[in-house]
Design a protein around this nucleic acid. Sequence first.
DNA 1: ACTTACTTGTTCGCCGACACGCAAGTTAGC
DNA 2: GCTAACTTGCGTGTCGGCGAACAAGTAAGT
Lengths: 198, 198
Amino acid sequence: MERRTQQERRETTERALLTATADLVVESGLASVTLAEVGRRAGYSRGIVTHHFGSKQALVEALVTASQAGFVPGLGEIEPGLDRVLALVERYLGAVSGIGSLNRAFLVLWAESVASPDLGPVFRERDALFRADIVADLDAGRDAGQVRDDVDPAVVAAIVVAELRGLALQYLVAPDSMDPAAVGRALRDHWRVALAAP
Amino acid sequence: MERRTQQERRETTERALLTATADLVVESGLASVTLAEVGRRAGYSRGIVTHHFGSKQALVEALVTASQAGFVPGLGEIEPGLDRVLALVERYLGAVSGIGSLNRAFLVLWAESVASPDLGPVFRERDALFRADIVADLDAGRDAGQVRDDVDPAVVAAIVVAELRGLALQYLVAPDSMDPAAVGRALRDHWRVALAAP
DNA sequence: ACTTACTTGTTCGCCGACACGCAAGTTAGC
DNA sequence: GCTAACTTGCGTGTCGGCGAACAAGTAAGT
């Protein structure tokens, strides 16, 4: 090991700890993750996590933050409207098969947050933002005459969020059971027909 | 407390323990449920769960089994085909707002099973059966000319399962955010348009 | 009386956290 | 440049708490 600066040492260690935590979360859930196992998996000792993060809670918060980076890049460049919703659906599911540890952990944490007093509020807020984005696009699309007048943006947003997360989880736990990209294209076409103004 | 038979005592206690466990699971997740708390919540002592079930694992298995009773009654009376899928969608979400502790616990356990080596296989098998039922209905509908030829039953089944579970969970964690019955009707109409043969 | 439901006392393993010691990296004085 | 003093990353010993499981006792039903 050549000479590294303190900052480099710290950063590589922290990355290793977060990805080790993410892997363990995906494998067996957050509750069963122990600090000792995280350290061991990352190639360090049992005490490393406490040293870096101080507490398990701090580790989890760092993981949640790090995992929040969405896995649909370049969506901000599309202007608001129907097309952006359709692109979201297609690209989200198109990207699912290639996501890394942190993004997989995000999906698992999202599922576990359902009954977790700690994680629950964080992920509920995030879902609310997710739905709000979709609602905004649908409203914009309706103003522009792209979207039918009789669709309820809030209802559609709730359904789309349920679909994307639900399908991603299904693929995560049983990759052989589906081709997410194909499902994504089908879903995109499906929504185009249902939403587009005649 | 008047005189009860041993069988009555045992049955009422077991029901109390299972519903107490279900409530605790919904509140804070399976991992954080302790046997002592289950006993206390059910109105007994710390040791009651061990006495009745022998181990925590046995308690969980009993809860999983008890929670499996689906909350869409009367679906077996509809003959296979498109109509049954549409009825499933509508009634599933129509029933969500009125389900009891055990069914709520089922949804939570389903979410937690994503990263649980113990629960995972059980719930994955159940989802596979759920999807297979929908596929069978769509195949029957296609044979009867009700369903378009260009729909992929496996894809649609995966999407429907994702929608139903995802929407039910969204309602479970944030009841004020949506009216599940209204969403159910919207989704039913949505699928009728998408699936029905021209 | 005997069995069965239930409670209470106790043990044992596990995990998070803290404290202290060592090693690797950094900086200042020469 | 070189090295000594300091800082920071990291390992190990240990403690305290918690929770599941077993054992032994008490009360309720047969």
